[in-house]
C-alpha cells in the first residue's frame, strides 16, 4: 500500500514536471507545442553530454534549462511568431521542428540507447518501505515547481503582464505591454522547463532520439484538462497519474499506458473546460 501511494505521488510528480513547459506555452500563447517531446529529448541529451564530459550530474538540469531557454527564443522568432494567426499551422510547424530535432540528434549521437548516471543512487526508507531516492527527489522538485510557477505568474511583473495578455490581448497592448515580447519569453520559459524536465527524468530512464515522444500525448491530455493553472495541473497529474499507476499495478501496464488518454478524452467530452472550472 505504501509503495502504491509513493508510486502515485512520484508518478504524478514526473507527469507534472514533464507537462509544465507545455502548460505555460498553451496558457499564454494558446499554442500546443508539438516540439515538446523533442525538447524533452534535447534535455535528456544535454544531461548525457554533461555527465559524459565528466561534470556533476546535478549540473545537467540547469544546463538543460539554459540551453532550452536560448533555443526556445530562437525557435519562437523563426517558427512560432510568423504563425501566430494560424494556430493549427503552428502545431504542424512545431511537429516538423520535432522531426528536425530528432534527426539532428540521430545524426549527432546515433540511434542507440544511452544511459545517464543518476545523481542520487540507492533507496531511502519512507513509510516503512525502501523507495528510490531519486524518484522522491523528482516528486519534491514537482511540488517546488508548482509553488515557483504560481509565484512567477501571481507575484512578478512578468506574471502580471502574461496574465494580462492571456485575458485580453488588445487591452494589454493598449496599456503598453509588449505582447510579442511576453510571448517570446513564455516560449523560452516553456522550452527551458521542457529541457530541464528531460534532464531530470533521464536518470530514471534511458536516452534515445525518440525518448520524448511517449510523454507528448500524456502531457497534452493533462494540460488540456488543466486549463491555465499550475495547481490544477498538479491535481490532474495526481488523479490521472494515480489512475495510471492503479491500472498498471492491478490490470496490466499496457492498459495503464492508455489510461490518461482515455480518461482525459472522456472528461473533456463531458466538460470541455476540464478541471479548470469545477
Amino acid at each position: 500500500m505504501a509503495v502504491l501511494a509513493l508510486d502515485i505521488l512520484t508518478t504524478a510528480g514526473i507527469l507534472f514536471v514533464v507537462s509544465s513547459g507545455l502548460l505555460i506555452i498553451l496558457g499564454v500563447m494558446k499554442l500546443i507545442n508539438f516540439a515538446h517531446g523533442a525538447f524533452l529529448t534535447v534535455g535528456g541529451y544535454t544531461a548525457y553530454s554533461v555527465s559524459a564530459a565528466g561534470y556533476s550530474p546535478w549540473l545537467s538540469i540547469p544546463a538543460a534549462a539554459i540551453f532550452g531557454f536560448v533555443g526556445g527564443l530562437v525557435v519562437e522568432r523563426l517558427i512560432v511568431r510568423p504563425l501566430y494567426d494560424r494556430p493549427l499551422d503552428a502545431i504542424l510547424a512545431t511537429w516538423g521542428l520535432g522531426i528536425v530535432i530528432g534527426q539532428l540528434i540521430t545524426l549527432g549521437f546515433g540511434r542507440g540507447v544511452q544511459f545517464v548516471p543518476t545523481p542520487l543512487a540507492g533507496t531511502t526508507e519512507l513509510l516503512g518501505v525502501d523507495y528510490s531516492a531519486y524518484r522522491l527527489v523528482v516528486a519534491i522538485v514537482a511540488v517546488l515547481l508548482v509553488i515557483a510557477m504560481s509565484a512567477l505568474l501571481k507575484l512578478t511583473r512578468f506574471g502580471l503582464n502574461a496574465r494580462a495578455v492571456i485575458m485580453d490581448e488588445t487591452l494589454a497592448r493598449g496599456l503598453g505591454i509588449d505582447s510579442t515580447r511576453v510571448r517570446a519569453w513564455t516560449f523560452g520559459i516553456g522550452a527551458a522547463l521542457a529541457c530541464a524536465a528531460g534532464a531530470l527524468i533521464t536518470p530514471l530512464l534511458s536516452v534515445d532520439p525518440n525518448m520524448g515522444l511517449p510523454w507528448l500525448v500524456n502531457s497534452f491530455m493533462l494540460v488540456l484538462i488543466s486549463g491555465v493553472s499550475f495547481p490544477s495541473l498538479f491535481v490532474a497529474s495526481l488523479i490521472l497519474g494515480g489512475a495510471q499507476v492503479v491500472v498498471s499495478t492491478y490490470a496490466n501496464p499496457i492498459l495503464g499506458g492508455m489510461t490518461i488518454v482515455v480518461i482525459a478524452a472522456l472528461v473533456l467530452r463531458i466538460n470541455p473546460k476540464g478541471f479548470s472550472r469545477g
Binding site: 500546443i32 492498459l255 488518454v261 470541455p272
Partner: peptide, 27 residues
C-alpha cells in the same frame, strides 16, 4: 462523437484524433 460537438475547439478535435492512433497502438 468525442471530437465534434458545438463548442468544441479545433485544437481539442485535433488532440482527439491524435489520441486515437495512440490508443489503438496500445490495444
Amino acid at each position: 462523437w468525442l471530437a465534434f460537438f458545438h463548442g468544441s475547439s479545433p485544437l481539442y478535435a485535433s488532440i482527439m484524433t491524435l489520441a486515437l492512433p495512440i490508443i489503438l497502438t496500445q490495444v
